[in-house]
Design a protein around this nucleic acid. Structure first.
Length: 246
DNA sequence: TAGGCCATCTGGTCCT
DNA sequence: AGGACCAGATGGCCTA
C-alpha cells in the first residue's frame, strides 16, 4: 500500500470523530450515526458535534456497570473505523484510477489526432476509404521512402544536391537523409541514404535480399498503398522499405 | 455470424 | 509521488 494512502487512512482513523473530514465520504457511510454526523452543518466555530446512539444521560448507568458494553462499543467503533478506512482507500484508488483513465483517454486522443494529421499529408485514394492506423503508419513509411528515393534519383541527374534545393523548402531539408556537409555530393548523400534502414537497395524487387522479396511482408507491388501520386513512375512499384507484418 | 478495427479501462512499469 | 507509457482485456460497431 502506498505511503500516502496509509497516511491518509491513519489520519482518517485519528480524525474519525470529526465531521469536517468526511464530507466526501457520504457514499461510504455505514450506519445512521455517520449519516447523522454528516447531516450536522459544518461549524467553523467550536468542536465538531458527535451524535451518539443510546441515552447518555440515563441515571444509574455508571462506567463500571457498563464496562462490558463499553468494550463491545469500542469493538463496534473499531469495526466501523476499519470499514471507513477501507472505503476511503477504495475511494482514493478509484479517484486516481478515474484521473489516470482520463489522462490515458486524452493521450490516445492526441495520438489519434497525430495519426489524422499524418493521414492528411498522405496521398488519398479514389475510394476515399480511411486508412486504418497500421495502414497509415506503413503507408507513411513507404511514402517517405519513395519521396527520398525521388530526391536521390533527381540528385543523380542534377549533381551537387541541386534537386534537393529545388524540390524541398529549406525547413524540410533536415527531414530527409542528406549529406553531412555542404561539400558532399549526390553520391555521398545517396550512400548516406543507403545506410539508413530504409534504403536496402535502389531496385529492391530485383534484389532477392530486399525485404520486398520476403514473404515476411504483406504489401507488395500492386497494393494500393504502393501507389504514390506525383512520383516518378519508375518508383511506383519499387519499395525497398517495408514494415514487417506479423 | 465471424473477424477486423476501435475506444476505453486497467494494472504494471518506467521516468522525471 | 505522480504522470507517461505500455500491453492485455473487453465490448461495441461495421462489413463481408
Amino acid at each position: 500500500m502506498p505511503a500516502t494512502l496509509e497516511t491518509c487512512l491513519s489520519d482518517l482513523d485519528c480524525a474519525s470523530s470529526s465531521s469536517s473530514s468526511t464530507s466526501d465520504l457520504s457514499g461510504f457511510l455505514t450506519d445512521e450515526e455517520d449519516c447523522a454526523r454528516l447531516q450536522q452543518p459544518a461549524s467553523a466555530s467550536g468542536p465538531p458535534v458527535t451524535v451518539r446512539r443510546g441515552a447518555p444521560g440515563i441515571p444509574g448507568a455508571s462506567d463500571t456497570a457498563r464496562a462490558p458494553d463499553d468494550e463491545q462499543e469500542r469493538r463496534r467503533r473499531r469495526g466501523r473505523a476499519r470499514v471507513r478506512s477501507e472505503a476511503l482507500l477504495h475511494s482514493l484508488r478509484r479517484s486516481r484510477r478515474v484521473k489516470a483513465n482520463d489522462r490515458e483517454r486524452n493521450r490516445m486522443h492526441n495520438l489519434n489526432a497525430a495519426l489524422d494529421a499524418l493521414r492528411s499529408v498522405l496521398p488519398s485514394f479514389p475510394d476515399d476509404s480511411k486508412l486504418t492506423k497500421i495502414e497509415t503508419l506503413r503507408f507513411a513509411y513507404n511514402y517517405i521512402w519513395a519521396l527520398a528515393e525521388t530526391l536521390r534519383l533527381a540528385d543523380q541527374a542534377l549533381p551537387g544536391g541541386a534537386a534537393r534545393e529545388r524540390l524541398l523548402p529549406p525547413q524540410c531539408a533536415p527531414c530527409l537523409p542528406g549529406p553531412p556537409s555542404p561539400a558532399s555530393d549526390a553520391e555521398s548523400w545517396a550512400s548516406g541514404a543507403a545506410a539508413s534502414p530504409c534504403a536496402a537497395a535502389a531496385s529492391p524487387l530485383s534484389d532477392p535480399s530486399s525485404p520486398a522479396a520476403s514473404e515476411d511482408f504483406t504489401y507488395g507491388p500492386g497494393d494500393p498503398l504502393f501507389s504514390f501520386p506525383g512520383l516518378p513512375k519508375d518508383l511506383l512499384h519499387t519499395t525497398p522499405c517495408f514494415i514487417p507484418y506479423h
